[in-house]
Design a binder for these strands. Structure first.
Length: 422
DNA sequence: TCTGGGGTCCTAGGACCC
DNA sequence: TCTGGGGTCCTAGGACCC
């Protein structure tokens, strides 16, 4: 049996940990740039505020005090997530962290009832020790466990834990769930299947294997098997990411090459830093720039360019210069750009990168550049020095210049704040 | 005025090989 | 005049997830 732990309204719950006065009130957390709603309290959901609503449309609620908005504070959410996950790690045999607010785990040698009792205890403990409300679903496959956790969240009677262990419960649950709420059926597939007369997850699970494969191929068949109690979703090997992306929308549109290249250099620098942090290197660097897709009156343009390094690297110099080469090939004057980003891919470990046959670089220079990148990392962390960076970079935090007008303090990770709180 | 960011997997089609 | 068969690898685009 798989258990799925899902933190309820996670970002909002994180903000409430340090603002208990907001319990029972309508609260939303906004995306970067204070762009749109990405997390809602139950009260905000009840007001009819949808996921993804542009924040500027909620001005009337905020001004009248009916709604409290927060800019996103990922340092805070990451820290509280780590606390929840470490608690779960202590209490389970095999924990698979699926996202910032979700994790699967198994427990060997327990009856379903004992597992359910254990999960009830966990719900209580996580609420007491970390302050975050969670729901847990237990079922024979991950997709069913996800469904069970939705039930646990939706119906108070479950007291946070829904066990779906029998065939009877499975069929009953599937019959109640609209198809589009199933894990793996998204906003395209849902309507498409509905048009074919399917309404609930049970309708879908009742189709023949052949029909599903013909219509939906491998991914659809996986979902179908999972709903029918056959495990088909593998664990993701979280060890090595296959790509790393850093991108931002700008508060204002950018037209000139120099400003854009400063941003791209900073995004590339952030990608290089993320590579160094996990001890990997990349061979491909993709630069992309986007015009403003909401401004139909302006010319649209969404180009990207990939530059392949001869030798995999994670130094600021290599990644930034590759990203700028890409930018030069796609930049077109006269377009007003709203967003840009850099993705590094074809990622390998240091051992794999070493011993390349046709290595064109000078090893001594590479060594020096690697040392310089490490010094740049340190200069960012150590406020005394000021930030050491390449002249082409804009500097400061790469997220500077985007709106963040409702940000909460770094309650758990800034020493000043920790002293205030305690 | 203001509309997010970061991932994964699969498939089809093209380029290339012998 | 007539022009095969069987592979692999890469990429772009589309679907999904949080």
């Amino acid at each position: 049996m798989y258990a799925l732990v899902d933190c309820n309204n996670f970002f909002v719950s994180c903000e409430r940990v340090f603002r208990p006065d907001l319990e029972g009130k309508a609260v939303v957390v906004l995306s970067n740039n204070d762009g749109c709603v990405v997390s809602r309290s139950n009260e905000a959901k009840a007001m009819g505020i949808k996921m993804g609503t542009p924040f500027f449309q909620l001005g009337k609620y905020c001004r009248s005090g009916l709604l409290t908005p927060f800019s996103s504070n990922y340092t805070l959410y990451g820290d509280l997530s780590a606390r929840v996950m470490s608690l779960l790690a202590e209490e389970s045999d095999h924990l698979e962290i699926y996202s910032i607010d979700e994790a699967f785990f198994t427990l060997d040698g327990l009856t379903p009832e004992a597992l359910e009792a254990h999960c009830r205890e966990l719900v209580t403990r996580i609420r007491q020790w970390v302050g975050i409300p969670v729901s847990i679903g237990i079922a024979p496959t991950k997709t069913l466990a996800k469904l069970a956790s939705h039930f646990a969240k939706k119906y108070k009677g479950y007291r946070g834990v829904c066990l779906m262990e029998t065939e009877e419960k499975r069929r009953k649950a599937l019959g109640m769930v609209p198809l589009s709420e199933v894990w793996g059926i998204g906003r395209r597939l849902g309507p498409r299947l509905q048009a074919k007369g399917m309404r609930t997850a049970l309708d879908f699970a009742g189709k023949s294997r052949e029909w599903i494969f013909e219509e939906l191929h491998v991914p659809g068949l996986r979902t179908w098997e999972e709903l029918n109690g056959i495990p088909a979703v593998e664990e993701e090997n979280g060890e090595s990411r296959k790509s790393i992306c850093t991108s931002r929308s700008f508060a204002d549109m950018i037209e000139d090459f120099d400003s854009l290249s400063q941003r791209v250099a900073d995004f590339a620098g952030a990608c290089a830093r993320k590579l160094r942090a996990e001890g990997t290197l990349a061979r491909k660097v993709t630069t992309f720039i986007w015009s403003n897709r909401f401004r139909e009156d302006l010319q649209q343009y969404y180009p990207s360019a990939t530059y392949c390094l001869v030798t995999a690297s994670n130094t600021n110099q290599d990644i930034i210069s590759a990203a700028l080469k890409g930018l030069r090939t796609i930049y077109k004057p006269g377009i007003r750009y709203k967003k840009a980003g850099v993705t590094v891919s074809d990622i390998c470990s240091e051992e794999e990168a070493a011993g390349v046959l046709f290595d064109e670089g000078d090893p001594l220079i590479r060594e020096k550049e690697a040392v310089l990148s490490v010094l740049m990392d340190r200069s960012r962390q150590d406020g005394r020095l000021g930030e050491l960076r390449l002249a082409v970079q804009r500097g400061g935090h790469y997220a500077d210049g985007i709106r963040s007008e409702h940000r909460s303090p770094l309650y758990t990770t800034s020493l000043d704040q920790i002293i205030k709180v305690y």
